[in-house]
Every structure is written in C-alpha cells, then in structure tokens.
Design a protein around this nucleic acid. Structure first.
Lengths: 1335, 342
DNA sequence: TAGCTAATTATTGATATAAGTAATAGATAATAT
DNA sequence: TTATTATCTACCGACAATATCAATAATTAGCCG
C-alpha cells in the first residue's frame, strides 16, 4: 500500500524538496528499507527555483530570421552576414529551469553509475525521480531507453521483455511514448534471443519484429540509425536474411559492411577475405607496400585481452631515443609516456616494411635495427619523391592509430607495470634498493592499498544491494555507486599519480590543498570511467563479429576508422562536484593510511640520529589570513626523494599531443581526442553557457567554427631536434640561462631572530622569508614546467603529431594538450616545427629573414630594413648556429625571443648552405603578428582614421608603432602643461624620461579595461627604480596613468565611443530583468535580483554567454574533511561589475577569434599549413604572402558588415521584453505621470504597489497586445502601466541631469539601449592594401 | 590637579572611530578603587605610564590626579583626539605623542631612539612596579592588535621586554569572552590558552548589554566587575553597529619558560579540531604524529579527550612531547607558504 | 498494528579562526539607518 | 528612503576555507491496548 499521507512540508522546503519527499513516499514499497530516493537526491540540496530562463519559444519565433538557415546552407563560403541566431528556447534543456537541470544532471550521473554496475532496482527508482521532473518529461524516453537497453539483455524471452516495457510505460511512466531507440532495443534483443535459440527464420520472431517496427512512428530509417544499439549482425539479419529493411535504410557508413552478402560472421573463407582486401586496395589505388603495411597494425581492442603483459625493460631499451639524456628524466610520468610510445615500437615485420621505403639518408637513420631512435621525421624528410612521402605518411598514420589508442587508454596499466618492474628489480638487488627506489615504494603502496579499496568496494556493493542492515558511513551512501565503476587497480594507480602530481601546488611547499586533491582525484576517476565507456562504445557495433579470424580484423579496423569520426552525441553526463570530492577523498584517505616512507631524524635530547618510518602523506591544516585551509602534507623524506622537482606524473597521458589527426569537431561534445571526451568550449561548468552551445550545435549553426578548429588540429608538427639538443644541454647544466632558472634544492631561509626580538624584527623576518619561499616556489614551478615541456618534446622527438584544439567561451582557440604546445613560451615555440616542409622560394627566403628580424625585436621598421638588418648580422647568425652556447657573439641570446631566434638562425644558415637557398625545404613556422590586434578591431569598428593608421589598417610605407605614438602624444600634452605651469615637476620629469616601454603595457591593457589604479601600478613598476621613494613614485605613476589614458582616448576616439557604448549597453542589460521572471525571487518590496547576463553571437554564429555570476559555495562533507565548493547549477545573480569589465574585451576577442577561424579555413583551402596564437598567425615562409593576403581579406570580410549595428539589433531582439531599473528626476512630468498611475494602481489593488505588481501589469498589457482577438489588442493599446509610461526615459534625461538632481524616482522602464555612436571615415576595405597590417 | 573634562569639552569630539571611552569621573574613580594599584606601585612616584589610544584622556586625567605618577604618556594618532588634546590638555603634565600605537616603530622611536620614555628593566619574578600600560582597543577591528599585545607577553618582547608589565586594557567584550574562556568551555580558543598560559587576566569593569549576557555567569561572579552604564561613556549617540560593548581587563603577565614556537604550533593545530578526540586530531601535527604521541602519552583515556577540554598545563605537556619528537616538522614551514603568484 | 509522541539523526546556517593592515584612492555596490 | 561602509581594482587560458555548534527538519523508535 502506498502511504497516502504526506506530512506538511516545512517552510524552507522548496519545490524540489517537496517533490523528492513525495516521490520517496511513492516509491517506498518498491525499494526496501533504505530509501533509495533520499540517497538519489541527497546530493541535491540547494533548491531555489531558477530565474534564469531564456526567452520562451513565443519570442523565439520572431527571432529566427527564416532566410538565414537556407542562405547559409546554400553558400557555405558566404561572407559574414548581418543576420544572427539567438539559440533561445530551441532546446528542451535550455528551457529547463536551472534547479531542474541540476537535478537532472545529478540523477543522470547516478543512473549511469548504477546501470553500469547493474543495480537495476536502484536505477529504476532513479528513473522515477527523473520522471517526476516535469520539465524533463519530453526527453525522458531517452533516459528510459538507456535503462531499458541495460536490462533488456537479461530477459529470457521476448514476451518478458515487451511485458516489462508495456508495464513501465503504462503503470510507472504514464504518457511516455517509446521512440525509435526503444524499438531498436527491442529488435536487437529479439534478434539476439532468436539467434541464440536458432529461430531467426521462425515465424514468431518475424511477427515480433514486425510488431516492434510498427511501434514507432519515426520510420525504419530512423530506427536503423541507432548504431549504438543495433550490431552489424542485426543489420545483416534484418536486411539479408529476413529482408525486412532495405538497403537505403541502413546508415550509410555501414551500408557497405552489411550489403556484402558473402561475409558471414561465423566463417570467413580466406578467398572472401582476399577479395575484400583486393577491392579495398583497388579502391585506394595503393601498391603493395600499403597492402603489406596494413599488417603493421593489429587490432588493439580485440587483442587487448590476450596481449601478454608489456615487457618494459626490453621494449624501452631497444628503442632508446637518440637524444641527450635529460636530468630528471627518470621521472615517473614520462616513463609512462615513453613506455607507451616505445612499447608500441616496431616489431621485426614492421621494421621490414618500413625498410622497404627507398630512403636516401645516412645509415643511422635508415637502420631500424640499430638500437637507436626510430625517427620518423628523419625518415620522412629523406624520402625522395612526394609519392613516397605520401605513402609513408599513410603507413605512419595507420600505425599511429593504434599507438594513439594505447597512449590514451593504457597509460595507467603502463605506470603500474613500471612500478612492479622496478620493485622486482630492486628486490633482486636487496632491501636497500627498495628503500631508495621511488617506484618500488609506489608499488608497495599500490599493493597495500588495493585490498583496502577492494574491501571498500565490497562494502559499497553490499550497501547497494541492501545486504547490510547496519548504518553505512554517511558518505558511502553518496559515493558507493560511483566507486564500483572503475577497476580498483586502476583507481589505485590513478590516485597515487594524482597525489604525486599535485605536490607543491596551491602555494603549499610540501603538499597540496585537500580540496583540490580530492576533486582532481575524483575527476581523474571520472575521466577514466568515461574513457572506458568510449572504448566500449567503439567496439559495440562489431562486437558479435568473429574476432579470431585474423584476416577479418583488417576489415573491422577499416570499419572502425569510419565510425570513429562518427561518434555522435557523446555523454553529456558529468559527475557532480560533490561526488568527485567524495570519491576522491575516500581513495586518498585510503592511500594516506597505507603509504609509508622511511625517515631519518635527530633526537632533540640525545642528539642521536634516529631512523624510522612514517606516513608518506598526512592530512593537516594551515591558516591563511586567519582562514583554515585543509592540506595534504607530503613527508619531507618523500619530497627529498622527488629531488626538489615535481613529478612528471601529472602529464596526463590522455592529454598529450596526438599521433594522429584529432577527431574532427562535428558537434559540441564530439571532437579532439578519441578516448577522452572534450568539449568544444571550455565552459567553467556553467550550465547556461553549455545550453547555448548545445543549442547552436544542434542547429548546425556553427559548422564554420568546427571547420576552423579542425584546420588548427590538422596541422602536423614535429620537434626541432637541434634546438632540443641545445636546450637540453643548458637544462642539464642546472645553471640559470635566459628565462630558465637554475636548480635549487632548498630555499635559503634567513635564520630565526631571537624569541624576544621586537615584533617588527620578527615581522620583517617573516616577510623576507615569505618572499624567499615565493621566489623559490616560482623558480621551482618554472623549472618544473620547463621539465614537462622538455620531457614531452623528448618523447615526441621524430614523431609526427597534432594539437587538438578547443575554445574558451569567447571562441579563442587553445590546444587541448597542456604544457608543450605552440602557445607556450619562447622555448616551447622554438621546439616546434612543421612536419611538412615547403620549398622557400624567393618570397620565402625573404620572409625567413624578416621573421628573424621580428624575433630579434627589429619589427618596427619597414620590411626591407628588417631584411637588411639580418644581412648585416650574418656573422652573428652564423656564429649562433655553429656555437650557440659558447660562440663569440651570443647575439641570439640578446634577442627579444632568443630561442625562436636561434631556431630561425639555424634554418636560415642551413638554407644558405645550399647553392640555391631558395630551394631549401623549410619547416620553420614564420609568424605574422597584428599590431595591437584589439585596437585594430576597435579602430575598424569605430572607423577611426588616426587610430586605424596607428595600428596599420591604412596602407603606409612603414609600420606604425602605437606605443610610440601614444608616448609622443603624452609627451606633447605634458609639454603644454609645463608651458601652462612651469612648476609642474612631474610633467617635466616625464618629458625627459618617457619612453615607449613605460606606456606599452598600459596601452595594451587599456583594451582590457584596466583601471586607473591598475595602470598606476603598471607604470610604477617601470619607474619606481628611478624614483626610489614608494609614495613619490606612486604619485608620479598616477599622474602619468591619467595622461596615458587621455592620450589613448584622444587618438582612438571612435574606438572609445564604441567601448563606452559597449559598457553602457552592458550596464543597462545587467540591470534589467525579464518581464516574466519568477516573481517569487523578488523579496517583499525589495529590488529584484539581476539575472541577465550578456549574450551575443559572433559573426560565425557562436553564441557567447558571459559566465560572470556571484558564486555560492557550500561545505561538502568528505572522508577527510569538508570541502568548500561551488555548485555550478546554483542560480545566482550576475556579477555586474565583471559583466561590465569583461564585455568590451570579450566582444573584441570574439571578433579576433572569428577572424582567426575564418583565416584558418581560407588558408587551408589554399593549401597552407596554419597555426595561430590568438593574434599571431603562423605558416611556412613561402606561404606568408598568401596568408597575409588572406588575413587582410578575411579582416575586411569580417568588418564589412557593421558589427556594432549587428550587435545592437541582436541585443534589441534578445532583450526585447526586458525591463530595467532606472532613475528619473522626481520633478519631471514623466515622474508625475508614473506616480499618478501608481496611485490608481494602488487603489485598484487595495494596497501599496510593488515591483511585482508593476511587472504583472506590464506583462498583462503585452499579452493583450499579442492576443489574437481584436478586442484584447484594443484593450492592450488602451492600457497604461507604470512601465509603458516610462518608455523612452533613458533618452529623455541625460547623464548630467541624473547626476545633478537630488530627488530621484526609481522606476521600471522598458530596456532600451543607447544609440550607436557615429562611425568615423575610415573604410575598412583599405586594409586589403595595407602591407603592415599584419607583419 | 587637572580638572576632569566637562561634557562641554568632550562634545568637541565628533568622531570616535568606533571606539568607546568611559568619561564619567565617578565610574573611573570606582574602577581605580577596585584596581588597588597602590598594591603594585606603592606611592607611584617612580611610576611611568603609557596610555595607548588614550582618546579623550578622561581616564588618564582621573588616574593622574589620583596617583601623580612620574611620567604619563598619551599616545594616539587620530586627529580628532590629538586636536582635542591640543585644545584642552595643553596645561596638563601629560606627555603627548601623536604616533600610531599600532606601529611597533612608534615604541622603538620613543624608547630607543628619542629616549623620551624609558622604562626600567626589571626581573621577571614580580610584576613590574614602575611601569604600567593602559590602553583602549574597543573597536572590534583592533582585536588583532590586542591579540598581538597578548602574544608579546608570551614572546617577552615589545613593552613586555622590560619585565612583567601590568596592562589595563579596554577591549571588546566579545574578545574578553574568548580570552577568558576556561577549559571545556565551547568558547575555548587558542587565544584563551595564550591568556591562561602567559597572563593572569581579570575583568574589572564592563558594560551591560547583550554581549555581557553571553558571559558565563560564574566567571563574572568570580571577578565581580563594576558594571558600566553606557551613559557614562562616549560616544553617546550610536547605532547598533557602533555600540562597541566593552570591558576593562587587568592583565598581569606570569613568569614562565617554554619553547613558544612549538607551543604555538601544537596549540594552533590542535585547536583547529578542538572537538575531535586527540587520537584523531593529533595526526595534523605532522606525518607520523599519531604513532609518536600515542606511545609517549600512553594513556588511552587522555587520547580520547578533545583539545578544548585541555588545561594550559596539558598543552604545555603536549608541546613538550612535540619537542621530543625526532621527526617533527619544522614549525615555521607553513608561515612562509601561500602567497599569490605574479 | 494505526497513530501518536519521543528520541535520534541529518541538514542548515552562523560564527570563529590568525594576529601586521605591503602599497594605493576612487568609483560603485551593499548595507544600515 | 538616504548615509555610510565595504569592495574592488585588465581579459582569457586557471584550479577551489573549514570545524563546530545550535537550531531545525526529517526520520525512526517506541508505545499502547
């Protein structure tokens, strides 16, 4: 019996709570003693209902310009259009309220976890919770399908299965209709059962199938599109045996596989295979090398189980990379990576195949049997013909496919094996070695932790199966479902690596912040789980196929390859932050329990040395400004063992550069790596952002964005070995060099003063030591970072690799792989060259020289001057190449960007060695940088003549230097001031001292909205050495900061008006509210909270949502301590300050990002290699001219549309029915009218008028106006509200009037944006001719 | 004899910087009656007084009329008060210093450089009988300084380097509550231990309000303080936030000998988890602390107790054990941590 | 065993923590009056 | 509704307070004829 009496809910119980409560009661008798639902929802606590709602669908209709989509589809190359999409209300997920959305997300992750661990009962109760969320109903069937697919496999016969479905959808989930996927599941299971019982051709089977097919209205094709449900066998049976589906109903990418009648899964005759192979080869027009090469690759998925454990020692030794050994190379993480790279080294057969290539190179490169490097790059470079190169690359690509998989998937195994190997080796050598060897320790921890973890997992399972009656630990109820998902062995390895990796992070010198540790450990577990899921899905379609048939593997592989790029709609499930923390903490607390290290100390009384052992980690706290901070300390003895350097463990193997082309972006969740999921946009877990991106993605509006990103991902790179050799030499030396800090084991703290020293003495001692600690930490982290970079570079020596990219929320692109990429510092940039080479040609040689001059710092003079500069310094350049470290001149070391300078020197000198240098095949990326790119866009938007010329938008014989220009204006203004007031000492001082460098940072950051005090501090940094006295120099700095601001304003007037306009728009929008907002969110008589964030779409249709909101954090209990984390789904009011400060720069950045993506696409069309660092664009020297032309053309294309007008139109529509809060003078007529109306309203209502009432009235009025009935419309027109009266108030009263007036009336007024400032005379088309636009 | 300030005089002061001062001569006399400073300073003819954040200086006047000490320095750097002195105390024999009592440099300057106020250094076997510190830290924000002054007793530096110098400080009642919280009180905090370990502190007087109501009744009974009415204090007009409930503490430093660094470290860490049994909280002293302390203490019952129940002696006992621990972490390590990067 | 109360447990919100407050100064949002 | 006080101070990539207690809500235990 159901309990019918629901206790009255308490006051603070919110809608969700009540919902949960009632569900609980409903479900009680289904679950047993423990209330699953409470557990389901226990992580969902904050239950405010949302007021963030995108405009509803009624609005949306009018927003979508109907011709837009068509226009875009027909002409994909179309120029930027003034049209825009709003992406509002197009998605169910968008229209969910945030609180619901959070509940859904939590339940999803729980559902996933429970299903994966086969807790079907529990899963079912979660489904019920999901069903109860009304706003989620529409997509509920997807969740049900997920569940149903899982349980369906256990049914003994078809009847049971369909009965279950029938019952669920009629009893439990009323009104839910099965869809095509449900049908697919039924069909798949039916076929599976039939196959098992050998009655495929049986009549009842056919009848069942026919019945199922008829269940869904969406048609056969739709049903058949579920390749994640139906297997290849299913298709075959349906198509070939039963003839129930037609050819065209099978998804195209597997149609070929199915259609081949002669392949049956049971017996593949060898003849058939040959035939297939032949067909395949004919189709690809490949010669025998390629045919053979296919055997290089084994099917890793199928072979995984049977594969013998990796033999580390052998593998690693046989393929020693031929590069200078690095210090600290022997670190954990890199061993893992190297091992995975090496572990997949060529076997004899493969070597043979490779040897067949016709290399023309010195023997050491050729001889793959030699125990030296397999340097693919050298091999490739030395191939004679393009044909051969192409062939080689194809072979490499296929070979790398598997290495990539191993790299992404098997890294934890590799680490574990490594530890065991080292442990056994050490054991053989004796106890002492075990103590010394770090890896042996890790192995010991691992072996000791594993049983603990297994026991915990057992407890979790018992809890989940309700076997245990005694109360579980409270946290277990939350983490139990998740802890059972990943193999315990893997979890141990992951958590050990995670802790070591976090050493010295978060400002803690011998440890880490607990909060960060538990969350990242939890995240890592989640990533591992996700990656396993992806792997599982990949092989799903082909899972029934006979794996033993060796010949068939190739076939499978080809099929997989085509499927890989097709993984649509991947998991959007993310574990809630709390779950991550809880999972992480249970693992970490276990490790803390078992991990011990031998330690040595001194008895303070006897002074004797004492030996013992102690926990390697311990949980403790520190105070920071009187605020507690949980830390996990690492025992100094272990720190010592890590030799003062952070472990390399943190190089997440999943996030290294890729050996194969990244999976192209096809939707917002699909792209990048193959086995770890990445998202198109780096949202900071902001559901709002995600909703918009998802909407854009689903409506196929951002394909151009994908195209651009894919271009970036397809650029292939390799490591510049010569630079690498030089860098490693410097590195190993351990001394500081250029920006590389020297090795330092411990910080040199000052001795402690006497205990009774004056407090001021003690304080300054603390202060100084803090500085020392800071510097030490900075140096160490710098060295660490460099170490990462070098290690990755070393691992990828001779490899061909790619950087998968995604974007920040403004659309700027970043490589997914951290540490080593082309966005890094000078050194990491210098280590990268294009894999593909291109002949320099005449232009190329010239541009190579220009590039060199630019890198050196000579980039403010005409091109010819730069060429000349290089030619004048050939001696120094040759010296640099011959003897980079001990040369006569060390010229390159004085360059702006020394390492890249050196790299370019080498390239140039090598080219000049040739008889005809223009025939040199160059791999060096050459850059074209915008001159203050932000200002370029501003100038284009504002039409500033002066500004445009200063940032080189206007053709000129020489490049202009904005910074110099600003400095000059400042100086001129100061001169005037001195004339007016000869006693102005500060002005006099700066007239003398002012230079480009002092103002540069301020001019640059001005675009980002630096404030007066910020600029003051910047300038102070430059000048305080000149003045000495702190207060004086600050005074001077402030003076100059004001002057610089004025000067910028003066020369970029148009730009400034734009900036102000953007700011004002932002002001008004962020102080506006939706008319139909949740009235409950307005406290009694209080002002409503502002929830409207700034949203716009870029010219490439990417919707951008500024994520700045107040963050609300809560304490979450974990096994170690409580952690303070924010709930991304909490609904918070916006942070108006940040919205305003961020909007202008974000808008500009969204434009430069668009420009980059457009240019990327164009350049790829022209066959160029292309890379970018936001406003610096790279390609081969020979292609610079083309690229530069493209850059200019795309810039013009971007700005040909008046983007500001476009933005205003968009804002006008997006925020159409919004209301803002404003003030007008009480004395004005409008105020009087409004007051009068308020009075009448008060009489109507019989009480004082609140904001809610005003909004209500206005909403009513608008509803009437939009009514179908004329009467209503008429009524609406006649209706007068306080808000309708206030229309136009913004324009009516000027800024001054508002400021001056004392008596102001606060009113609600329809949101109106200020008029766009007039544009200047500058015509953007002239950019096409401007040589120095980018240079 | 300098005439106490009148209400008219005092009305010149417009702003009290969220501080509160007793200005009623009668109440002040009562207070001094209760303090019986004669017991410590005898006839006061060698007594030097440093009066910090002296404010309107009514208390100083009453005090000086009564004891006629050798030297009485008023220190305050707030213009409202220094200007007030300028106008009203010209004829007094107070030495007035416009320096900032917050700044350690002020004292170095006065004592060591300018030698305008040089107390005698006395051994620590008795309360200093020629030097007295009076002060007012009644703004809640000044609690930090109060704690530092207390800490100076423990460090034996600042003015406490001259011996065990008595301090008469007006402090926020909330601070006093924390400082005087006895073992097993839920209010027990690290500063209570500082107070208990290094000083003998007594409540002499306090304002009656919602803050004083929170005091443990028994404790108040023990001190039998003088209740001060807000009408005898300034400012008279105040809002809730500027109420500044306050309390006069008589602080007599004790004689003690201990390793302050270790003691600070141990108390700080244990008081973070003050309601967690020692056996669970102890590991936060460093990796392996549980093993060592359990063995050294060898008393399961003790290990089950929570830090907030420990007496000052028990904490000294624990910090002694810590001192003997061969693998103890450096107690200064974490002082240098956690700064922002560039 | 229904239906109640008492007792226990879980959740939530408020508060204290340490103990130089590195410098700056001006606009704006938040809070108190 | 106005006066005072607190906050924040250049964008993005980027990364984070916590223990304790009192009050209250939710749940379980216990009770009885």
């Amino acid at each position: 019996m159901l309990r019918t009496i629901v206790k009255p809910s308490c006051h603070s119980a919110t809608i969700t709570n009540r919902l949960i409560h009632s569900q609980y009661i409903q479900i009680r008798n289904i679950t047993t003693k423990n209330s699953v639902l409470r557990d389901n929802m226990s992580i969902i606590s904050d239950t405010r209902t949302s007021t963030i709602q995108p405009p509803d669908t009624v609005f949306q209709q009018s927003f979508l310009r109907s011709n837009f989509l068509n226009k875009n589809k027909n002409r994909p190359q179309d120029n930027i259009s003034a049209e825009f999409k709003l992406f509002t209300g197009t998605q169910n997920s968008v229209s969910l309220t945030m609180a619901d959305k959070r509940d859904v997300m939590s339940l999803w992750s729980l559902l996933e976890a429970c299903l994966q661990s086969n807790y079907t009962e529990r899963s079912f109760s979660i489904l019920k919770s999901l069903y109860e969320i009304k706003s989620h109903r529409k997509t509920f069937i997807d969740d049900y399908n997920y569940y149903f697919n899982h349980i369906a496999k256990d049914f003994k016969n078809v009847k049971l299965m369909s009965d279950k479905l029938q019952k669920d959808l009629t009893v439990h989930f009323v009104d839910i209709q099965p869809n095509d996927k449900t049908v697919a599941i039924l069909i798949h299971q039916t076929l599976k059962l039939a196959r098992k019982n050998n009655d495929i051709m049986n009549n009842s089977t056919r009848q069942n199938l026919e019945l199922f097919f008829s269940m869904s209205s969406s048609g056969f094709k739709k049903i058949c599109s579920n390749i994640d449900i139906l297997t290849l066998d299913d298709y075959k049976t349906l198509h070939l045996d039963l003839d129930m589906i037609r050819d065209y109903q099978i998804p195209t990418n597997i149609r070929d596989l199915v259609a081949r009648k002669n392949i049956t899964m049971k017996n593949v005759s060898s003849e058939d295979v040959k035939k297939i192979e032949k067909e395949h080869n004919d189709k690809n027009d490949h010669n025998d090398i390629v045919v053979n090469s296919t055997n290089l690759v084994t099917d890793s998925v199928t072979s995984k189980a049977s594969e013998p454990p990796m033999k580390l020692d052998e593998d690693v030794k046989t393929v020693e990379k031929d590069a200078t050994k690095l210090m600290n190379v022997d670190t954990l993480g890199m061993r893992v990576i190297k091992h995975t790279l090496f572990g997949l080294s060529l076997n004899e057969e493969q070597k043979e195949k490779i040897a067949k290539f016709n290399f023309e190179a010195p023997d050491n490169v050729l001889d793959v049997n030699d125990k030296r490097t397999v340097n693919f790059y050298e091999m490739y470079k030395n191939l004679k013909t393009d044909e051969e190169k192409e062939m080689f690359e194809t072979t490499l690509e296929e070979f790398n496919q598997n290495r990539q998989q191993t790299l992404e998937v098997r890294a934890t195994d590799a680490a574990k094996e490594r530890w065991r190997h080292d442990f056994e080796e050490a054991k053989a050598r004796g106890d002492l070695s075990i103590q010394k060897s770090l890896n042996s320790k890790l192995w010991k921890w691992y072996t000791e932790m594993l049983p603990l973890l297994k026991k915990e997992i057992e407890d979790c399972k018992r809890y989940l199966n309700k076997e245990t009656l005694q109360k579980s630990a409270t946290n277990r109820t939350d983490y139990a479902p998740y802890l059972t998902l990943v193999d315990p062995e893997k979890m141990c390895v992951i958590v050990i690596l995670e802790l070591l990796k976090l050493n010295s992070t978060g400002g803690i010198s011998e440890g880490m912040r607990t909060a960060r540790a538990v969350i990242s450990a939890g995240k890592s577990i989640e990533m591992e789980f996700r990656s396993e899921q992806l792997l599982k899905n990949e092989s799903y379609l082909l899972k029934d196929i006979n794996k033993k048939s060796n010949e068939f593997k190739q076939y499978v592989r080809n099929a997989k390859k085509s499927l890989r790029s097709l993984k649509l709609d991947e998991s959007k499930i993310i574990w809630p932050q709390q779950i991550r923390a809880k999972v992480g903490s249970v693992l970490i607390s276990m490790l803390i329990k078992v991990a011990r290290v031998p330690v040595e100390g001194r008895d303070p009384i006897s002074g004797e040395r004492v030996f013992g052992d102690a926990p390697a980690f311990s949980h403790s706290y520190q105070y920071h400004n009187g605020v507690k901070l949980g830390v996990i300390r690492i025992h100094p003895a272990l720190i010592h063992q890590l030799n003062g350097e952070r472990l390399m463990a943190s190089v997440q193997p999943q996030l290294l550069p890729m050996l194969v082309k990244p999976r192209p972006w096809v939707n917002w969740k699909s792209g990048g790596y193959y086995y770890s999921q990445s998202s198109l946009i780096r949202t900071k877990d902001s559901p709002e952002q995600m909703a918009y991106i998802e909407a854009a993605s689903k409506s196929n509006a951002i394909d151009k964005v994908y195209d651009g990103l894919n271009v970036l991902g397809e650029t292939s790179w390799t490591v510049n070995q010569r630079i690498f050799d030089v860098v490693s030499k410097v590195w190993n030396n351990g001394k500081p060099f250029l920006e590389i800090p020297g090795v330092q084991i411990t910080p040199n703290y000052l001795p402690q003063p006497a205990p009774d020293a004056d407090p001021s003495v003690v304080n300054s001692w603390k202060q100084k030591n803090r500085e020392i600690a800071n510097e030490f930490a900075a140096n160490r982290s710098m060295r660490c970072d460099m170490n990462y970079k070098l290690e990755i570079a070393r691992a990828f020596l001779g490899e061909k690799f790619y950087f998968p990219h995604n974007m920040d929320f403004r659309g700027r692109a970043y490589p997914l792989s951290p540490h080593f990429n082309h966005l890094g510092n000078d050194m990491s940039r210098s280590l990268l060259i294009f894999w593909k080479g291109k002949m320099l040609g005449k232009d190329g040689l010239r541009w190579l020289k220009v590039h060199l001059a630019n890198l050196y710092g000579v980039n403010k003079i005409p091109i010819e001057g730069r060429v000349q500069f290089v030619e004048d310094h050939m001696d120094e350049i040759r010296d640099a190449v011959e003897n980079p470290l001990n040369g006569k001149f060390k010229w390159w070391q004085t360059a702006d960007k020394p390492w890249q300078t050196l790299a370019t020197c080498i390239e140039l000198v090598e080219a000049l060695k040739l008889e005809n240098p223009e025939e040199f095949i160059s791999h060096q990326p050459v850059h074209q940088d915008g001159t203050c790119n932000g200002l370029q866009h501003y100038a284009a938007l504002g039409g500033d003549m002066v500004g445009a010329s200063q940032v080189n938008l206007i053709p000129d014989s020489k490049p202009n230097d904005v910074y110099m220009h600003v400095a000059n204006i400042v100086r001129a203004n100061l001169q005037k001031k001195v004339e007016a007031n000869p006693d102005d000492e500060i002005a006099k001082f700066f007239i003398e001292k002012l230079n480009r460098k002092i103002v540069k940072q301020t001019v640059m950051t001005h675009v980002y909205g630096v404030t007066l005090i910020g600029a003051t501090l910047q300038i102070d940094k430059q000048i305080h050495d000149m003045l000495g006295d702190r207060t004086l120099s600050l005074q001077y700095s402030k003076y100059l900061a004001k002057a610089v601001f004025a000067a910028i304003r003066q020369s970029f007037q148009g730009a400034h008006l734009i900036q102000d306009w953007l700011g004002e728009c932002c002001n008004r929008i962020s102080k506006s509210i939706r008319l139909d907002l949740d009235k409950k969110s307005i406290g009694k008589g209080k002002k409503p909270e502002f929830m409207t964030s700034i949203i716009w779409t870029t010219p490439l249709n990417l919707p951008i949502v500024q994520p700045y909101r107040e963050i609300s954090k809560k304490q979450v209990n974990t096994n170690l301590q409580t952690v303070y984390i924010s709930d991304p789904f909490a609904v918070n009011k916006i942070n108006a300050r940040r919205q305003k400060a961020g909007f202008p720069p974000n808008f500009i950045h969204s434009l430069d990002a668009s420009h980059m993506l457009m240019s990327a696409t164009k350049c790829r069309e022209d066959g160029l290699e292309f890379a970018s660092v936001h406003d610096s664009y790279w390609t081969h020297a020979s292609d610079i001219v083309t690229m530069n032309k493209n850059l200019r053309e795309q810039f013009v294309a971007l700005h040909e549309v008046d983007l500001i007008e476009r933005l205003k139109d968009e804002f006008d529509e997006r925020y159409k029915n919004y209301v803002q809060i404003s003030k007008i003078p009480k004395s004005s007529d409008m105020a009087a009218e409004i007051m009068a109306r308020k009075d009448t309203m008060a009489i109507e209502l019989g009480r004082a008028v609140t904001y809610v009432d005003e909004l209500q009235f206005e909403q009513e009025r608008l509803a009437l106006l939009n009514s179908e009935f004329e009467d209503d419309v008429k009524k609406g027109q006649e209706m007068v509200t306080t808000i309708s009266l206030a229309k136009g108030s913004e324009e009516l009263f000027s800024e001054k009037e508002r400021k001056g007036e004392q008596n102001m009336l606060t009113i609600l007024t329809p949101l109106e944006l200020p008029e766009i400032p007039a544009k200047g005379d500058f015509d953007v088309a002239s950019v096409k001719e401007s040589t120095y636009f980018f240079s | 004899m300098f005439k106490p300030l009148t209400a008219t005089n005092l009305s010149e002061i417009k702003v009290f910087y969220k501080f509160r001062y007793v200005v009623s001569p009668r109440v002040l006399e009562n207070i001094f009656d209760k303090l019986r400073l004669e017991d410590t300073y005898g006839d006061c003819k060698d007594l030097k007084v440093m009066d910090l954040n002296a404010g309107p200086a009514q208390q100083s006047i009453i005090f000086n009329n009564r004891y006629r000490c050798k030297q009485h320095l008023l220190m305050d750097n707030r213009p409202q008060f220094t200007n007030f002195w300028e106008r009203n105390l010209k004829k007094s024999h107070f030495q007035m210093s416009p320096q900032d009592p917050y700044d350690w440099e002020s004292y170095l300057m006065l004592i060591d450089h300018q030698k305008l106020f040089v107390p005698e250094k006395q051994p620590r076997d008795h309360i200093h009988n020629k030097f007295l510190i009076m002060g007012n830290l009644t703004d809640k924000k000044e609690e930090g300084l109060l704690m530092q002054w207390y800490n100076c007793v423990g460090q034996k530096n600042w003015l406490q380097r001259f011996g065990r110098v008595k301090m008469l400080l007006w402090v926020p009642t909330s601070s006093a509550r924390k400082l005087l919280a006895p073992a097993s009180s839920t209010q027990r905090a690290k500063c209570s231990l500082v107070c208990e370990t290094f000083t003998d502190s007594k409540i002499i007087a306090l304002t009656q309000d919602e803050e004083s109501d929170l005091f443990d009744k028994k404790l108040l009974d023990k001190f039998d303080p003088i209740w001060v009415d807000y009408s005898s204090t300034l400012p008279q007009k105040f809002s809730k936030t500027k109420k500044s409930p306050m309390c006069l503490l008589e602080i007599d430093p004790l004689d003690f000998e201990l390793n302050k660094g270790n003691w600070d470290y141990v108390t700080q860490h244990l008081m973070i988890q003050k309601s967690t049994p020692l056996i669970d909280a102890i590991e936060s002293l460093g990796p392996g602390a549980t093993d060592f302390f359990t063995k050294q203490i060898n008393d399961p019952e003790f290990m089950k107790r929570c830090p907030y129940t420990f007496s000052a002696e028990e904490f000294i006992y624990l910090s002694d054990i810590y001192f003997r621990w061969p693998f103890k972490p450096d107690v200064f390590m974490n002082l240098f941590n956690a700064q922002q990067e560039e």
